[in-house]
Computed example of a mutant assay.
Amino acid sequence: MTKERVVLDSDLRYLDKGNLFQSRSELSVAKMLSFLGHDYQYNVDLELPNGKSAKVDFKAGSKYIEVIDSEADVAKFKQLREQLPNLDIIAVGHSKYASKIEEMDSLFFFDSADHMQTGSIFIEDPSLAFDYAHILPLVEKCSVLHGHTSTVMVEVIGSMKNNLVVDFSEAKRMIKETLSVIDHKFFINNKYLKKEDDLHYYVAFDGPKGYFSLQVPKSTTYMLSGEATVENLSSEIIRLLAPKMPQNVQALGVYIYEGVNKGAHIIAGVKKED
């Protein structure tokens, strides 16, 4: 059986005016400069103040262009900016490096719709809410048993399939299923658990408001690894929701609003086990 040869970008050769370019991006810049009627030099040496030299991809007149195709190119561009602050240079490159180049006058090629894109959706609805009680023994004001009604907003980040991250109705259904697990529960750190029987947990702690000893039904109690803060509840929702998500989902963000103008936001990557 004949094997199909996979052609990599490194296998291709990009030529213009006798110059052998290292990537398709460099060839595109060269073609654009030629189209605009600019003569250019390729792979130009620049002397740095420390006595060393660095190569810049293009020089057109007194201006320079560095094509960003790798992390090494990012580091080189930053070095040029730092050591030669008056150098008239811009960076041109792939969108994934855009956040690493702070200069606003630099240009980046963004992926077209024909390539895999990453997107996000958010779901916020009054029906996405849950009631709960908790105790925070380490926080004086919250070290007594009290409760909240909290609304939730969820952000789903992932690669696009058929121009969708995930269907809104499906995402909403999965979120509601997750919230039903924690709705009307009493949350507390499992480190305060002293003993248990078939029906009850026995928790106790010495807090700012005195010594507490509680017998609570297992059916309405949710033991957490860590304190029952709104941040930890956000993380717990992500832990419960992640297995329900399709394979293309890469990260989840959960906002929990605990009253007026306060809450927490946690975002975490989602790793699917094979």
Rank of each mutant, 00 (worst) to 15 (best):
residue 192 Y to N: 00
residue 196 E to M: 04
residue 100 K to W: 05
residue 223 M to N: 06
residue 178 T to S: 06
residue 235 S to A: 13
residue 146 H to S: 05
residue 186 F to I: 08
residue 208 P to V: 00
residue 154 V to A: 01
residue 216 V to S: 08
residue 137 P to W: 05
residue 155 E to H: 09
residue 110 F to E: 12
residue 185 K to T: 04
residue 102 E to H: 09
residue 234 S to G: 13
residue 230 V to S: 15
residue 219 S to P: 08
residue 165 V to I: 01
residue 109 F to N: 11
residue 164 L to W: 11
residue 207 G to L: 05
residue 161 K to R: 15
residue 226 G to P: 05
residue 147 G to Y: 04
residue 222 Y to I: 04
residue 220 T to V: 06
residue 136 L to S: 04
residue 117 Q to Y: 00
residue 223 M to F: 02
residue 120 S to T: 13
residue 121 I to Q: 11
residue 189 N to C: 08
residue 120 S to D: 14
residue 170 E to G: 06
residue 181 V to T: 07
residue 106 S to I: 12
residue 200 H to Q: 07
residue 190 N to K: 06
residue 209 K to Q: 15
residue 106 S to F: 12
residue 149 T to W: 02
residue 167 D to H: 12
residue 137 P to Q: 04
residue 227 E to K: 02
residue 229 T to F: 01
residue 108 F to Q: 10
residue 139 V to W: 15
residue 218 K to T: 06
residue 232 N to V: 03
residue 177 E to Y: 01
residue 121 I to C: 10
residue 178 T to A: 00
residue 164 L to Q: 11
residue 143 S to W: 08
residue 120 S to K: 12
residue 137 P to H: 02
residue 195 K to D: 11
residue 134 H to K: 02
residue 124 E to Q: 10
residue 217 P to L: 13
residue 199 L to V: 11
residue 98 A to M: 04
residue 137 P to D: 03
residue 187 F to H: 00
residue 192 Y to W: 11
residue 177 E to R: 09
residue 197 D to S: 07
residue 215 Q to L: 11
residue 230 V to C: 14
residue 222 Y to T: 01
residue 94 H to S: 05
residue 177 E to K: 10
residue 125 D to H: 11
residue 169 S to F: 15
residue 233 L to G: 09
residue 105 D to Y: 06
residue 196 E to I: 03
residue 144 V to Q: 08
residue 175 I to N: 06
residue 213 S to C: 09
residue 105 D to V: 00
residue 188 I to M: 12
residue 179 L to D: 02
residue 141 K to C: 07
residue 114 D to L: 09
residue 195 K to R: 09
residue 155 E to G: 10
residue 131 D to V: 07
residue 195 K to E: 12
residue 215 Q to P: 07
residue 201 Y to Q: 02
residue 206 D to R: 06
residue 135 I to A: 04
residue 166 V to H: 07
residue 225 S to L: 03
residue 162 N to D: 15
residue 229 T to S: 15
residue 130 F to I: 00
residue 234 S to H: 03
residue 225 S to R: 05
residue 132 Y to Q: 01
residue 118 T to C: 14
residue 186 F to H: 13
residue 123 I to Y: 01
residue 131 D to L: 07
residue 183 D to V: 00
residue 123 I to C: 03
residue 227 E to G: 07
residue 141 K to Y: 09
residue 220 T to Y: 01
residue 233 L to T: 10
residue 153 M to C: 12
residue 115 H to Q: 12
residue 185 K to V: 01
residue 109 F to V: 14
residue 217 P to V: 09
residue 150 S to Y: 05
residue 197 D to N: 13
residue 162 N to Q: 15
residue 199 L to T: 15
residue 180 S to R: 09
residue 135 I to M: 10
residue 140 E to F: 01
residue 122 F to C: 07
residue 99 S to A: 13
residue 216 V to E: 03
residue 186 F to V: 11
residue 231 E to M: 07
residue 122 F to K: 12
residue 209 K to T: 11
residue 118 T to P: 02
residue 102 E to C: 02
residue 127 S to P: 03
residue 171 A to T: 03
